[in-house]
């Protein structure tokens, strides 16, 4: 399960910070493409992976305000 964050909208720093904050909840990988930051959820330690993915995206967005 993955999310593609548009680099012109989401900052790499915010995505990295969110990965750190979520590190106790899930194993997350990050890959950079030309226009996107690809975040892959490898394993969720507790709860539902799809929900975690959405919460993660909200968290990253929240860091931009």
């Amino acid at each position: 399960m993955e999310i593609k964050f548009n680099k012109e909208i989401y900052s790499l720093g915010a995505v990295k910070l969110a990965i750190k904050e979520f590190s106790e909840l899930a194993d997350i990988d990050i890959e950079q493409e030309q226009n996107y930051i690809r975040v892959k959820f490898i394993k969720v330690k507790e709860g539902d992976m799809a929900e975690m993915k959405d919460e993660f995206a909200n968290y990253v967005l929240g860091l931009h305000s």
């Binding site: 909208i9 989401y10 909200n58």
Partner: peptide, 23 residues
């Protein structure tokens, strides 16, 4: 984009929001 971030922030407790497109 800043205005969009600020508005989005106020809804994060109610809905999931994802942004894409060309700023």
């Amino acid at each position: 984009l800043e205005t969009i971030y600020q508005a989005a922030y106020l809804f994060l407790d109610k809905v999931y929001i994802f942004l894409d497109g060309d700023p």
